Simulated scan of single mutants.
Amino acid sequence: MTDDAWPNEPTPEQARRAWSGTVSALPVGTRITGQVVGRRPFGVFLRIDDVPHAVGLADIGSMPPGDHN
């Protein structure tokens, strides 16, 4: 994967239709698993397992030093 790699993303309409289900499935504090689908200098984007069309951001600025090498 290159730094510019990015997955097939859902259309805006798919994202709108999926939003309420995503919020219900992922209340604040939920631990998730997924696959890294994009990298940027500030972190990685994850396709979240079992939640269609959900993508999360793991921001390396909020990680303890040494955990994002």
Rank of each mutant, 00 (worst) to 15 (best):
V37E: 03
W19I: 04
A54D: 00
T30P: 03
R31S: 14
S20Q: 12
A18K: 01
I32P: 05
L46A: 08
N69G: 11
V37G: 00
S20M: 12
G56T: 01
N69C: 01
T33P: 01
R47L: 13
T2H: 14
D49R: 03
P12Y: 01
V23I: 13
H53F: 15
N8S: 13
P65K: 07
V28K: 15
T11P: 08
P41R: 15
D59V: 13
G66K: 08
V36W: 08
A58F: 10
A54F: 02
G34S: 04
P52K: 03
S62N: 09
A25G: 09
L26A: 03
S62Y: 12
F45M: 10
H53Q: 10
D59S: 12
G29M: 07
G34D: 08
T2Q: 15
L46C: 10
L57Y: 04
N8Y: 07
S24R: 15
I32Q: 04
G61Y: 06
T33C: 04
T2V: 11
I32E: 04
R47F: 04
I48T: 02
D4Y: 13
G21M: 11
S62G: 14
L57T: 00
T22W: 00
T33L: 03
R39G: 00
E9A: 08
H68L: 05
G66W: 04
H53K: 03
A54E: 04
A18Y: 00
F42I: 11
Q14L: 07
V37Q: 01
A54I: 00
A25T: 06
W19K: 15
F45T: 06
A54Y: 01
R47W: 04
V55F: 13
P7A: 08
Q14H: 03
V44Q: 05
P52D: 05
L26F: 00
T30V: 10
Q14A: 10
H53G: 02
V28Y: 11
R16V: 11
S20Y: 06
A18H: 00
G29V: 11
